[in-house]
Design a protein around this nucleic acid. Structure first.
Lengths: 250, 250
DNA sequence: TTTGAATGAATGATTTTGAATAAAAGTGAT
DNA sequence: ATCACTTTTATTCAAAATCATTCATTCAAA
């Protein structure tokens, strides 16, 4: 078997399975362990894969690739529902602000063919936005490593040069009395300004965020429309009792 | 069997299988190893196939994605040298602007423990910057998908709020008479402004960019220090003859 | 016949390969 | 945690395969 043939086969299997054991490769191809090992070294040098103990894995794409992290996240199905619903509020030609965060991320696949212009501070969104071929602008400012988001006074300042038809925000705490809250004050400032600059504001949050409060206040609950899952959960029904709170569910 | 007949047969088999072993060809046709070998050399010269150890392969291999990655890392060793040298010009505590591009990318691993603050428009740099735990700011503006860079008037505007000790720029054309040039006018504007805002400017480019010119002019060659490989190449020596051109090599 | 291109064989150099070994990393029980 | 045990990895080396080069031969056309 030709070296290049082995390389191709390895990559094909890897693409199919995500990871692969060295021993499996040895069995599958008619080659010694040493040879396969050398193949993996070469492919790693070509940045085609990442070698791990016992085999190889797909090269971790730029660290910004959400599809890998996506699976890890809890409530993935619920977030997807919320994202789909949120995307349905976008009209053709809208200019929207997309907050960072995994829930907002789920909107993007449903935004294709809406002819939308996006401004975002979420780096994790970029691969999907590119893939969907959406006209995208990125907020400038300080890079917050923990959440892959752009924050800080520069970001707030940058935002102020734009106006939006709609903004879509993630939120950690939603409470009828204490309002909208998020743990990071820097992010709170940014969300606050986004609401100011938008005609209409949407907050995406799964049921676990309802009636919670965290550190920094973003605004009052009446300013936004809350998009959440759990149609008949007690929390949702309770929220709806308040006359000026807008809650929508799938 | 006629030479052209063999050539056609080789190409046909190759098209069918993707790769082919030299020994198989020897068996299949009534010709010696030497002859087949010569055939392959000729066909490679005609860019009809790629010779590999033990046989030949198609140029465009079916489903072999990493060729893109490989391309991205062309001249990888040279770029690494250039990047290492460039990083050595950074002092502790510097605030620097890092242009987008693969050559600049290579600087980052050598920037650790310099206590540096980075502003960049290159999204590809972010994973490495995060990993190196470098204080990073991102330019805001329009996302250019092709190069994973932030560009446009918003980006230029954003940049103008900062001042840098040093900036490090990639460049496609470097010519003593026509100056520094790059294919995209948007990027040219950004590079131009970066030079204005920096105390000292460095251009990183491998030897293939010397004495080349492309579309949009960034500035004159005297404004910057050029960091390139190829110490004793004719091009470098020739550049150095110009009294006010600064060129450094590893 | 002479010329020149194509061929096949032979040579030595280079690359690839598989096996052997020691080092390193993971595993699991105490 | 440590320790013993297993698996995986890195390294080295010799054998095998492949390659580049040279040279003599063949064959066709001038």
């Amino acid at each position: 078997m030709l070296t290049t043939e082995r390389h191709q086969l390895i990559l094909a299997l890897l693409k199919e399975q995500g990871t692969i054991k060295l021993q499996d490769l040895v069995e599958q191809m008619n080659a010694s362990e040493s040879t396969i090992r050398r193949d993996l070294v070469q492919l790693e040098e070509m940045k085609a894969l990442k070698r791990v103990h016992g085999g190889a894995a797909l090269f971790k794409q730029k660290g910004l690739e959400p599809s890998i992290n996506e699976k890890k996240h809890a409530n993935h199905v619920e977030k997807q529902q919320i994202g789909k619903l949120a995307a349905s509020y976008i009209d053709n030609g809208d200019c929207v602000y997309l907050d960072a965060g995994t829930t907002i991320l789920e909107m993007i696949p449903y935004m294709k063919e809406k002819n939308v212009t996006v401004l975002t501070n979420g780096l994790m969104h970029l691969p999907l936005l590119m893939e969907a071929d959406i006209k995208t602008f990125l907020v400038g400012g300080k890079l917050k490593i923990a959440t892959n988001a752009i924050v800080g006074t520069q970001a707030v300042q940058f935002l102020s040069d734009y106006r939006f038809d709609k903004c879509f925000l993630g939120m950690n705490g939603i409470h009828p009395d204490y309002g909208l809250t998020t743990p990071d004050p820097d992010e709170a400032l940014l969300k606050m300004r986004a609401i100011q600059l938008s005609n209409k504001s949407y907050v995406l949050a799964d049921r676990s965020k309802l009636f919670e409060t965290t550190f920094a206040r973003v605004g009052s609950i009446e300013e936004v429309t809350i998009i959440t899952d759990a149609n008949d959960e007690e929390a949702v029904l309770s929220l709806r009792k308040h006359s000026n709170v807008k809650v929508v569910t799938p």
